[in-house]
């Protein structure tokens, strides 16, 4: 293991995750107005109609798959009595379906983004970079899922352990060094994507409106609480107003 390996699988992940966390905090504090999905549905609807749900539901399934695969230690599923073959079958079949959904949806979305002029016109440089990253990460991920069916590398004893080790602050970069190239590529690009994330429209994922299921339909807000749309900062309270009773 040389210095380069240590940088790649130890230092770089921490840099990226730090940017990920601090970037989101910064973005939320200073660019709430820019925090949006910037939908282009008004420009073009016929491709988006099927491609966008396909991509998003696909990627949600992929995300859950990663929570399973990376987050849950092998010993836990073993304890539950899930055999390796069974886990493998589930992961590959469900993973492949979700992956294909995601990639087909993404290709549809990229097609309309490139060939519908109005959509292309509303695409920023950052968008283009983000789409490229997203495409490669998903493609390498699909390759890994496919190779899982034929190859004999068990990521649950390699990549997954490395991934968790980062969060335990007990990193094990050697596990990545010994991983196959396609897994290395996927892992590297994915953590790079995390570093880019706060500066792209991907931030909308973190304001998924689950609260909608639990709130009352009609919302009331007092003008007193909000002058403009920002609440007053601490230390800048107005000295005069006696708030209206409510």
């Amino acid at each position: 293991m040389n210095v380069f390996d240590i940088f790649l699988w130890l230092i770089f992940p921490y840099i990226c995750l730090t940017i990920f966390v601090l970037g989101h905090i910064w973005r939320y504090r200073y660019d709430k107005f820019g925090w949006t999905s910037r939908s282009s549905q008004m420009y073009e609807d016929s491709i988006l109609r099927w491609a966008n749900p396909m991509f998003h539901f696909g990627i949600l399934a992929v995300f859950l798959g990663h929570v399973m695969g990376l987050g849950i230690p092998k010993s836990w599923t073993d304890a539950l009595g899930v055999s390796e073959a069974m886990y493998h079958f589930m992961a590959i079949s469900v993973g492949a379906i979700a992956g294909v959904f995601t990639i087909v949806g993404l290709i549809g979305l990229l097609y309309r983004r490139r060939f519908t002029k109005a959509v292309l016109g509303a695409t920023t440089k950052m968008d283009k970079f983000m789409y490229l990253m997203l495409l490669i990460v998903i493609l390498t991920g699909l390759v890994n899922t496919g190779s899982g069916a034929i190859g004999d590398y068990n990521y649950r004893e390699g990549v997954s352990v490395w991934f968790r080790s980062i969060f335990y602050f007990n990193p094990q970069p050697e596990l990545m060094v010994s991983a196959p190239l396609s897994f290395q590529l996927h892992g590297f690009l994915a953590i790079t994507l995390f570093a880019v994330w706060p500066f792209t429209r991907l931030v909308h994922a973190f304001t998924a409106p689950v609260n909608y299921l639990f709130r009352p339909y009609v919302l009331y807000r007092s003008r007193d609480d909000h002058e403009g749309s920002r609440s007053r900062r601490r230390g800048w309270d107005k000295v005069d107003t006696i708030p209206r009773r409510r």
Binding site: T207, P209, N211, Y212, R215, V218, L219, Y220, R221, S222, R223, R244, R246
Partner: peptide, 9 residues
């Protein structure tokens, strides 16, 4: 999101 509201006043 709950971004739209009716002003109480």
């Amino acid at each position: 999101t709950g971004a739209i509201y009716k002003r109480e006043e």
